[in-house]
Simulated assay, not measured.
Amino acid sequence: MKTQQIAAVVLATLIGAPAMAAQCDVEIGGNDAMQFDKSSIAVPASCKQFTVKLKHTGKLPKAAMGHNWVLSKTADVQGVAADGIPAGADKAYVKPGDARVIAHTKVIGGGETDSVSFDVAKLKAGESYTYFCSFPGHSGIMKGTLTLAK
């Protein structure tokens, strides 16, 4: 009888336990020293959508030290950044319709936040992805890696 009681308790515990949900969002900060506070982000493959919340932790206005968060394949970063500069601040320094851009936020200044969500199905296992700030002059140092995690 004890074995049946133990089995019943274990079963009840398993049924009643909340499922461990993947964390399908992240917050990342950008500061007045042109640095993100994370050098890498792992996106769980089990997520359908992934949301990035960008927070400008500095004090400078966006005209002087604006930041955004742009995601592309690593091989495309230089081209996306170069093509984004002529698009200007009102287009977040991202060329309109650029198919190389997986996701991006708007450009924000000190104390501001913005978020972007993207379809995780756009990511492929084993592909190299980089997130960066496309504000002119920032992409060379203000970047990190994004991976699709199992």
Rank of each mutant, 00 (worst) to 15 (best):
V116Y: 02
L71Q: 02
V9E: 10
G110E: 00
K38Y: 10
F50H: 00
M65K: 13
G144C: 01
A75G: 14
L148T: 02
G144K: 00
G97C: 08
M1C: 12
L60Q: 10
S139D: 02
V94A: 00
A149I: 01
Q78D: 13
T13V: 15
G16H: 10
T145L: 12
G84T: 02
G79F: 07
V107Q: 03
K53A: 11
V94H: 00
M1Q: 14
Q5I: 15
D119E: 08
L60A: 11
Q78P: 09
A82I: 15
T74D: 13
L60T: 04
A12K: 08
A64G: 12
A12H: 09
P44F: 02
I108Y: 11
Q35R: 14
G88L: 08
D32W: 13
T13G: 12
D37I: 05
I102C: 03
K2R: 04
V52I: 12
D76A: 07
G58Q: 01
K62E: 14
T130G: 11
I28L: 04
T113N: 10
V116A: 02
F36I: 11
G144V: 00
E127C: 06
A89L: 12
E112M: 10
V120M: 06
K143Y: 05
L14I: 13
K55L: 15
K62N: 12
C47T: 12
H104W: 03
K59P: 10
D32A: 14
K150W: 11
A103Y: 08
A103L: 11
I108S: 07
S134N: 04
I41R: 00
T130N: 06
K2P: 06
F135C: 07
G126K: 09
S139P: 05
A33K: 13
V120H: 09
P136R: 05
K150I: 11
S72M: 01
P18W: 11
V120N: 09
K38V: 12
L14N: 11
H56Q: 08
K124L: 14
I102H: 03
Y129I: 04
T74M: 04
S72P: 02
G58Y: 00
S39K: 07
S46W: 07
S40Q: 09
V101F: 02
A99D: 14
T130I: 07
K2H: 08
F50V: 00
T145D: 10
A8V: 05
C133L: 03
D98C: 05
A19M: 13
A121M: 08
D119V: 06
A82Q: 15
A63V: 13
T147H: 07
A75F: 12
D37P: 06
A82R: 15
C24F: 03
G84H: 01
V116G: 01
K91W: 01
I108E: 13
I102M: 04
A22T: 13
L123Q: 00
C47K: 06
F135A: 04
G140L: 12
V52N: 02
P18M: 07
S139E: 01
A125G: 08
G88R: 09
G140Q: 10
T74A: 09
S40C: 07
I28T: 04
G88D: 08
S115C: 10
H67C: 06
A21R: 11
D98L: 07
G110C: 05
A149T: 02
V26A: 02
L148F: 06
F132L: 08
L14R: 14
N68V: 02
L11M: 15
V101R: 00
D76Y: 07
